[in-house]
Measured scan of single mutants.
Amino acid sequence: MDGTRTSLDIEEYSDTEVQKNQVLTLEEWQDKWVNGKTAFHQEQGHQLLKKHLDTFLKGKSGLRVFFPLCGKAVEMKWFADRGHSVVGVEISELGIQEFFTEQNLSYSEEPITEIPGTKVFKSSSGNISLYCCSIFDLPRTNIGKFDMIWDRGALVAINPGDRKCYADTMFSLLGKKFQYLLCVLSYDPTKHPGPPFYVPHAEIERLFGKICNIRCLEKVDAFEERHKSWGIDCLFEKLYLLTEK
């Protein structure tokens, strides 16, 4: 054995408090879109979701699917093309516009009456609605409950000090017999300040354990050449399924 860690023996890093005071403002996230600093976007979609999607959907149609901090995630069109209703929230209007443009979807925009100064973008087909606002303002819009949440790049982007508020927001959107698919990253948080932030299993239990059954479905090596600039040499991604207790 050469000592290389595999996707099945990932350790939890003990120094989980080192990132707790890290803060990125909404304006800084918007600047990332304006300046093209969106390496977190996956042009081909998320491979773990693609692998498990049909198993999760079980042939159902007409589900309501929520994408927190959606950006221009191509997976939104995957669900819409399968007959589901997609709702996303994203602070960057540019990111939302790029989604519709890159997916060749016509759309309209209208003000969100409950949140002055914000807009919702709706596909002409009517099954994709993307709200351009802070996720913490979203419950004011009465958008209803969801059958499924796809959380990739959301919890790991939320400032650590806001995670409890974020989890409570997610709980307010969950319908009966929900499936909450959650991706988190595992790396040494003493070497990279984030975002994306390190979210250990214990944190998921703390945030969601009282209401959800929590199961880790898969762990994969997600390290890429660009991650060397973070000062790390190891990065794993974990896919969790959260269901109603």
Rank of each mutant, 00 (worst) to 15 (best):
E114G: 12
L53I: 12
S92T: 03
L63G: 11
R206S: 02
I91N: 02
R206N: 01
V74W: 03
S106G: 11
V156S: 07
Y187L: 06
D168W: 05
K50C: 13
F121G: 00
E27F: 08
C165R: 14
L49C: 04
M170S: 00
S124K: 14
H227L: 11
E110M: 13
T6K: 15
K72L: 02
K177D: 13
E90L: 04
L48P: 02
L241M: 04
L235P: 04
C133Q: 03
N213C: 14
K191V: 08
E109Q: 09
L8Y: 07
N35W: 11
G62R: 14
G59K: 03
T141W: 08
G62T: 13
K51V: 11
K238S: 10
Q47V: 15
S123L: 00
N213V: 13
G161M: 14
F223L: 14
W33L: 06
N21V: 13
G3W: 13
Y13E: 11
P68W: 00
V220S: 05
K119P: 01
K122P: 02
L242M: 06
I91H: 06
S85I: 12
F67T: 03
H201R: 12
H227C: 03
G175C: 03
K238Y: 02
Y13V: 11
S108P: 00
D188R: 04
E205D: 14
M148H: 06
V65W: 04
K60H: 13
G209P: 06
L53N: 02
L130S: 00
G71T: 02
L26N: 10
T113P: 12
A154P: 01
E12C: 10
L185T: 10
Y13L: 08
T243C: 15
A222I: 04
S125A: 08
S61L: 15
K238E: 15
G161V: 14
P139F: 13
D2G: 10
G175M: 08
K228T: 02
I10A: 10
L63F: 11
L217G: 01
F40W: 12
V87C: 10
L155F: 07
Q44F: 14
T243E: 07
S123M: 02
L26D: 08
E102R: 05
I135Y: 14
K238M: 15
P116L: 11
E27M: 06
I232C: 05
C212L: 08
S7C: 14
F66E: 02
Q19G: 02
W78D: 08
E12P: 02
I91S: 08
A202Q: 08
E90W: 09
H192R: 11
P193H: 14
K245S: 05
L155Y: 02
E237S: 10
G3Q: 15
H201L: 14
K50G: 07
C70S: 09
E237Q: 13
M1E: 14
C133T: 12
E218R: 03
H52G: 08
W33T: 04
T16R: 11
K37L: 13
S124E: 08
D147M: 01
D168E: 14
K119S: 10
C216Q: 12
A157K: 04
I128R: 01
A167R: 11
A80H: 03
K60T: 13
E114W: 05
F197S: 02
Y240S: 01
S229G: 13
I135M: 11
Q179K: 15
G3K: 05
L24K: 13
S61Q: 05
K245G: 09
V74A: 05
Y187S: 08
I214Q: 02
P189G: 07
K177S: 03
L235V: 11
K122A: 03
E27V: 08
T118E: 11
L174C: 02
E225R: 11
L242A: 02
I232Q: 11
I214L: 07
L241T: 15
A73E: 02
D147G: 02
I112C: 02
L69P: 04
N213Y: 14
W150A: 03
P193W: 03
L57Y: 07
D168K: 12
A154K: 01
I91A: 02
L130F: 08
V34R: 12
A80V: 11
R82Q: 14
H84A: 13
Y198P: 15
D31A: 12
F208E: 01
S134G: 04
F136A: 02
T55Y: 03
Q97K: 01
G194V: 03
E203F: 06
D2N: 14
L138A: 12
N35L: 13
T243V: 05
M76N: 01
G3S: 13
G83C: 03
P111A: 14
G45H: 09
L239H: 01
S7E: 14
S229R: 14
S186M: 07
G83R: 03
F236W: 13
N142I: 11
V18W: 09
I214T: 05
W150F: 13
D168L: 09
E98S: 09
F79G: 00
R163N: 00
Q44A: 14
D15F: 09
P116E: 08
V120D: 01
C234T: 11
Y166N: 00
S186G: 06
F56C: 09
K37G: 13
L242Q: 00
K238A: 14
K77P: 03
D162Y: 07
G59A: 11
S85K: 11
A167M: 07
L26S: 04
K176R: 10
R206L: 12
T16D: 06
F171K: 12
V89E: 00
T141K: 11
M148V: 15
S229T: 02
G36K: 09
G59L: 10
C234M: 15
K191E: 03
S125C: 13
R226N: 11
K37F: 05
R163S: 01
M76Y: 02
F40Q: 03
F67C: 04
G175W: 09
V74Q: 03
D81N: 08
H227N: 06
W29M: 03
R163P: 00
R215Y: 13
K72P: 03
L69V: 05
G231R: 10
I112E: 02
H192G: 03
A39E: 04
E102W: 04
C234G: 11
L173R: 03
S92R: 03
W33P: 03
F79R: 00
F99T: 02
Y240D: 00
G153W: 07
N142V: 09
F100D: 02
V65K: 00
G153N: 12
L185W: 08
K145G: 10
T141Q: 11
L185A: 03
K50S: 10
F146L: 04
L239K: 02
R5Q: 08
P195F: 03
S108E: 10
G231S: 10
A167C: 14
G231K: 09
A167P: 00
H84Y: 04
F40T: 06
L63M: 06
G83M: 03
N142C: 14
V86G: 00
D9A: 13
T141V: 13
K51D: 01
G62P: 04
K50P: 03
E110S: 15
E218P: 03
L182V: 07
K245W: 08
E12Y: 02
Q42D: 12
V23P: 13
